[in-house]
Design a protein around this nucleic acid. Structure first.
Lengths: 199, 199
DNA sequence: TGCGAAATTGCAATGACTGCCGATATGCAG
DNA sequence: CTGCATATCGGCAGTCATTGCAATTTCGCA
């Protein structure tokens, strides 16, 4: 079961590449699924056996971040409290360099901020991720957190980061400054918002 | 310009009522816009001159909460810091009785948690609201907050409350207890979520 | 080589949404 | 009261995502 499998992977990649290209040039909404399928040399119907929808195309391996965060929680050090672990988890799972280099990732960041449908889907994925992370965090600290507190804590941290990030990415100067500046300003902003927790 | 105006308002309400009814019985996804239009005695095409989409139907006056929060910021007391004002704003703008009694509001709460499309739209509205509130907060505290920090702070607080709320609403016991219990537990959850900042 | 499962794909249908346009209804001036 | 300008209404046709169905092709393996 290898030729088949490899072919599927190649086709899948072809679809992503074709779509990335079309989205970048024509724009997301002006690109039809039929266009993408044609560019990837497959039937329109076949597209939907690779991706459940046009939006899913932009969020492959959506659970990678969750996995990273869960891993950070699992490998916590003896003395670390919930908030500390979570901060570390977010650093590890957060915007990596990849997000600022990989073409699809860059495109995604832009589309999330401009295309309603994409934004909605992205937010859904985010809250699902929060839920999952909260579950693990609570399991890791059964004495200190109940389910509601865990959800609140995770919501606060991720909320702070995404809120700051969204505004930050709208600032042309900040974006022009490159990844380093962005990371620094993001850290500053979240420090202010999360001060109550770090104390 | 009165007869016309009144008629529009009446028709709008008729649409909402018809939709509420159909959604409640048949379910959101099994109710077509054509069904709603027919039940409200208007042409399908006309529906879209009242609501931009099927989802908008569920979020009339989406900016009421924002207005309440902005108002809380505007009426801040001399000694209050940003976080305190925001905590007060969230308490005032938070889920009112209406959300637990009004049929459409109750339905909305349920659909947000079960229908992907509705959830996506609801989340979008929420982040837009956060943006707006952050802007006002920053204007109110120009010395202590920059735009990014304000967004982070608002994101953290709202994130905490919504995270807690989502978990709470998933508890069958809490929901079964009726509006009173729900309201009490909601207040508790909000307190827990916001405690770190109220101090 | 040839069979059975998996993958591909065309076709038709559903449903949201839009642009276009004629038919109606309403507000207001004369 | 009449008639025009305008706001609404609502039908029609078309686009696009998405799905069920069924025929066909392609593979993996015996």
């Amino acid at each position: 079961m290898t030729l088949r499998h490899h072919k599927k992977i190649r086709t899948r990649q072809a679809i992503v590449d074709a779509a990335t290209d079309l989205f970048a040039t024509r724009g997301y909404e002006k690109t039809t699924v039929a266009d993408i399928a044609a560019a990837a040399d497959i039937g329109t119907r076949t597209f939907f056996s690779y991706f459940a929808s046009k939006e899913e195309l932009l969020f492959p391996q959506a659970d990678a971040r969750v996995a990273a965060a869960v891993d950070a929680i699992a490998t916590r050090k003896p003395g670390e409290g919930p908030a500390e672990v979570l901060v570390r988890a977010l650093r590890e799972a957060g915007a990596s360099d990849d997000d600022l280099v990989n073409p699809l990732a860059r495109l995604r960041l832009q589309l999330i901020r401009t295309v309603p449908a994409v934004r909605g889907r992205g937010l859904q994925i985010q809250v699902d991720a929060q839920r999952e992370i909260a579950r693990h965090l609570r399991d890791a600290y059964p004495d200190e957190l109940d389910e509601v507190s865990a959800a609140a804590l995770v919501g606060a941290l991720i909320g702070a980061v995404s809120g700051a990030l969204e505004v930050l990415l709208d600032d042309p100067d900040a974006v022009a400054g490159g990844p380093e500046l962005l990371k620094e300003r993001l850290r500053q902003a979240t420090d202010v918002a999360l001060r109550p927790w770090s104390g």
